[in-house]
């Protein structure tokens, strides 16, 4: 192991996960390929969703891949940043909406 957890070159080795479990890897990559095809949503729209999700799950490999993919598919920098803000708003909102739970509890136990 190297002395860090993430290496940009590992993204190119993603397919290598099949070395340890081919059947499941094949199923995953087949499913992955199908998900990103043009269908009710275009491949371009799916790329922007993937970019936002990549930021929400804070996956550096996914951010690398979908920053390139979304830009190559024609999204502007402003559009891509707005997608990241959507992810941020949902994540921030997810934290804040739990504030209601906190309030509920405090109201329950407080005088």
């Amino acid at each position: 192991m190297e002395n860090h957890y993430y290496n940009a070159k590992d993204l190119d080795k993603f397919g290598n996960i099949a070395e340890y479990q081919k059947e499941l890897a094949d199923k995953f990559f087949s499913y992955y390929g199908e998900v990103f095809k043009d269908s009710h949503l275009t491949a371009k729209e799916k790329s922007l969703i993937a970019l936002a999700v990549a930021h929400a799950v804070q996956c550096p490999y996914c951010i690398d891949a979908y920053s390139s993919d979304a830009f190559e598919k024609g999204y502007s920098e402003a559009q891509m940043m707005e997608a990241v803000h959507v992810a941020s708003a949902i994540k921030g909102g997810a934290v804040l909406v739990h504030g209601v739970q906190m309030m509920n509890k405090v109201k329950e136990i407080g005088m």
Partner: peptide, 17 residues
């Protein structure tokens, strides 16, 4: 043609757009 260091996306999808 791409405005940067990347390859063109699918011609069919691009033409439609």
């Amino acid at each position: 043609n791409p405005a940067g260091a990347f390859l063109p996306p699918s011609q069919t999808a691009l033409e439609k757009e």
